[in-house]
Design a protein around this nucleic acid. Structure first.
Length: 334
DNA sequence: ATTCCACCGGAATAGCGGGATA
DNA sequence: TATCCCGCTATTCCGGTGGAAT
């Protein structure tokens, strides 16, 4: 049934990106001067999750790598690597100058110096750029000659809000590329390609793909995850074809899987906090802090709990309603 | 209307862990 | 081996905010 798992993973970049021709053209147009030694434009990619931003960026990066072999290309997920040090470390990896970098002994400033010494052009994709805890990292990279940035974020104002005025005004001249949610028909086309590459022939019908695409509400990540979930469900039941029942279950199954993976990544203290919110369903901050302090030995400070809760809210594990005194924390059901 | 105060979140600071250096 | 150094996490401090109490 499933012939190639990789086709359904997050980082997979298909050989042919469908329904994103405008965006691909704009992005590769901004970078085109690299092919003849010219000066490329920085680029900003905006759009909701699952709209193909990361996929488009990776596709163009790969293409560029083939067309301009001496250029260095790199990809940074700023959600995972959110400090100046980590971002610059990734950039050094992209240019092959990170072999001896060590967390505890290489000062951040020397990483920037290393990049400065690179002659060949460097293109860096900074995914989830608005999630950087130290947005100064963007400025560090921007100031290095020969480095071109492709910043990805959900919404433009949120990205610019994190930047200092000088950098913000400079980046306003960058090429902007907007991504909208996919239509159901577009998602079906995407799923058809993935099914052709990753599943046995006739494992899934067009009607099934349409059902998955419809339930995914324009989000390609959900749609592709659901296709995999449907295929796995069929495998589990020892069938060679996906059935209607597999499809109905698939979207919630994919969402539950993402949710569980996220919960697993929490530390013990974060998990205790999360469990308390889930047990209560909805809870006021003061009450939550007290219960937490009663439950664990050696509790973290309240300020730290607020950081945890902010993190969990971002992961969509909890929801926050209201400001200051009126605030409540609520569990998010997958 | 005014005061109160629970709570938020930014900024500065401290402590930890562990590679580098001598 | 002892000391230095540096990124990272947690803590401390605190000004700001808006709902509740007076």
């Amino acid at each position: 049934m499933i012939t190639d798992e990789r086709v359904f993973t997050e980082g997979f970049v298909p050989g042919d990106v469908v329904h994103r021709h405008d965006q691909l053209g704009r992005l590769s147009g901004a970078l085109r001067p690299l092919t003849d030694g010219g000066r490329p434009e920085n680029a900003l990619l905006f759009g909701p999750t699952g709209a193909g931003k990361t996929c488009a960026a990776r596709y163009v990066l790969r293409e560029l790598g083939e067309r301009v072999p001496d250029a260095h290309v790199g990809y940074v997920d700023c959600w995972a690597d959110y400090t100046r040090f980590r971002v610059l470390e990734r950039a050094c990896e992209a240019v092959g100058r990170a072999a001896d970098v060590h967390r505890r002994s290489t000062p951040t400033d020397t990483l920037a110096e290393r990049l400065r010494g690179v002659d060949a052009p460097v293109v860096l994709v900074l995914d989830e750029a608005d999630q950087l805890q130290e947005p100064a990292a963007l400025g560090d990279l921007y100031r290095i000659p020969g480095v071109t940035l492709v910043c990805i974020a959900n919404r433009e104002p949120e990205l610019f809000a994190t930047l200092d005025d000088r950098l913000a005004s400079r980046l306003r001249t960058a090429a902007r590329v907007r991504f909208d949610r996919y239509s159901t028909a577009e998602l079906v086309a995407i799923l058809r390609d993935r099914a052709a590459e990753g599943l046995e022939a006739r494992a899934v019908t067009d009607d099934h793909l349409r059902g998955l695409a419809d339930a995914a509400a324009g989000d390609a990540r959900v749609a592709i995850g659901a296709l995999r979930a449907a295929a796995r469900s069929a495998v589990r039941h020892d069938r060679e074809r996906v059935t209607d029942a597999d499809v109905v279950e698939a979207v919630p199954a994919a969402e539950t899987l993402i949710h569980e993976r996220t919960v697993e990544r929490l530390t013990d203290d974060q998990r205790a906090l999360y469990d308390l919110v889930r047990e209560a369903g909805e809870i006021a901050p003061g009450e939550l802090y007290e219960r937490y302090e009663a439950r664990v030995d050696d509790p973290k400070s309240r300020r730290t709990l607020r950081n945890y809760l902010a993190k969990m809210a971002h992961y969509d594990l909890v929801e926050r309603d209201g400001e200051t005194r009126g605030r409540v924390y609520r569990i998010v059901e997958p």
